[in-house]
Amino acid sequence: MATDAALRRLLRLHRTEIAVAVDSAFPLLHALADHDVVPEDKFQETLHLKEKEGCPQAFHALLSWLLTQDSTAILDFWRVLFKDYNLERYGRLQPILDSFPKDVDLSQPRKGRKPPAVPKALVPPPRLPTKRKASEEARAAAPAALTPRGTASPGSQLKAKPPKKPESSAEQQRLPLGNGIQTMSASVQRAVAMSSGDVPGARGAVEGILIQQVFESGGSKKCIQVGGEFYTPSKFEDSGSGKNKARSSSGPKPLVRAKGAQGAAPGGGEARLGQQGSVPAPLALPSDPQLHQKNEDECAVCRDGGELICCDGCPRAFHLACLSPPLREIPSGTWRCSSCLQATVQEVQPRAEEPRPQEPPVETPLPPGLRSAGEEVRGPPGEPLAGMDTTLVYKHLPAPPSAAPLPGLDSSALHPLLCVGPEGQQNLAPGARCGVCGDGTDVLRCTHCAAAFHWRCHFPAGTSRPGTGLRCRSCSGDVTPAPVEGVLAPSPARLAPGPAKDDTASHEPALH
């Protein structure tokens, strides 16, 4: 009773807030009518008042009428009001819900409408889902798969039609296919003929059939049928067999079959498995989609049935006599038709004709302190090069084509190399640097090759510096006499390219 009084008091307290929050009759008014909170006449009256005075006034009048009803109607109103779709449509209802007392429970059932309790003993237990329907569909599909699609060729003596089998029958139906081979029951999904010589313990000319048996419980189990008994694959494991010639990621696949039913060829011909030897223990289905393919039931050349050999690369099948050149017997292992072999060759040939990528240039590290003349020119003028003790990398590039010797140069053309002071002394051009340390401070000019250098860098042994005729380390061993002091540049003949010694390969005349 306390809860009923509290709900009535809360409705009177929030009546105006609810009326202002509800700006549309749908969905709240319609939901109240659906849950029998508002009768039909009051529903029509509220809609009429909404058209006349507006939605807030109409709902305020409806809530005032609701306060005169019993506690069950008020409880049902609060339940409908706080439904998710009403809270989404009328956003101003959320503060009312947040301020609702926590001790007021809106989930209690309506009085007088409590459903009768059902004894637990009368409640049926839930049924577990079964796979009976899938099993029945598999039974119905198996006879259809064994139905012949056409008439065999005159040369083929193997013609068999499976008798119709009602689904209610649980007995196995067997077809006489000759040579002791028996087909599987209607619940078998796949059958492959297997030679009895590969099964340990088999006697006589009995041949087993590799099947997948579907049981009534819905589970499946792969086994071997020899005669009327089934054997699990673990009985046929043979770890010492060295003649297993397995197909790549293979499961067994029928390579020879008669049109209309699988079996042995007439005249004692023995149908073979995809792999010879003992049956392997793992009978998992292969991951290669080509091995799941269903080959055609007629020859791809003459479009006739009979004894066919199936290609492992495509769905086509052929007569042995229709092949070019014809085959006398079934080859062992994987067999592919000429079209598949030709496609494989065409895929391999473009790969062989692809040009080989060019090898990157060989990189040879230079000892610290040495650099090529090109690196000396590329440096920024007026700045010493940083990191001189790091190992430089010199790339061996292809030799350029031989060019004509340089033409003779006048001494005026070499004027930018040297600057003559007032006393006739050779001065260095701006930006000249030593080729060893890279520093341009207090550098000297070689009178023979006009290269800038430090005496301490080229002659670290402490050799005394002569007063005139300074030469760098590369030119100090040259027998050519030094030019007379005061000459602007060496003779043009000295600039012609010539053979250089091994220790002077990195010091070429550089223009500054």
Rank of each mutant, 00 (worst) to 15 (best):
V37Y: 03
V199I: 14
R257T: 08
G227L: 04
R113P: 05
L66A: 05
P125G: 11
R132E: 02
A264T: 13
F43W: 02
A264I: 00
S185K: 10
V214M: 03
Y90S: 01
L255W: 11
S71F: 03
K161A: 05
A186Q: 05
L128C: 13
G227T: 00
E167P: 04
S153R: 05
D23Q: 00
T46E: 14
W65Y: 00
S220D: 04
S249I: 13
S239P: 11
E207D: 07
R92H: 03
D198E: 13
T232G: 09
R149H: 12
A121T: 03
P163T: 09
S250L: 10
R92D: 02
D238R: 03
D4C: 04
R9T: 03
D4N: 03
S220Q: 00
D36F: 00
P176H: 11
L146S: 10
P95V: 11
A58H: 00
G268L: 11
V22A: 02
D34A: 01
V118H: 15
R127L: 05
K235G: 12
G269C: 08
A138D: 06
A152R: 09
K221S: 04
A152P: 05
F43I: 01
G267I: 12
D70F: 01
G197N: 13
S248N: 07
T151L: 08
P233Y: 05
E17K: 04
E216R: 00
T72H: 14
V20A: 00
I74W: 04
A170F: 15
L49Q: 00
V80H: 00
A191K: 04
K221F: 01
P176A: 14
V199L: 10
S234W: 07
F236M: 00
E51F: 00
R113S: 10
Q108M: 15
K120A: 07
T16G: 02
A160K: 00
D238L: 12
F26P: 01
F82Q: 04
P119V: 08
W65G: 03
K259W: 12
D238I: 13
S248Y: 11
R257L: 08
V104A: 01
A121Q: 02
V256W: 14
D105H: 06
K131H: 02
I74M: 02
P200D: 05
G228Y: 04
G242D: 09
P163Y: 15
K120E: 09
Q44A: 06
L175F: 12
A246S: 07
S71W: 01
I209D: 06
L177H: 10
S249G: 13
P124S: 11
F43G: 04
S168G: 07
P39E: 10
L87C: 02
Q69P: 02
L32W: 00
G201E: 07
L93R: 02
V214L: 04
F230E: 04
G155T: 06
Q69V: 01
T68F: 01
P115R: 07
I211S: 07
V20R: 00
L97V: 04
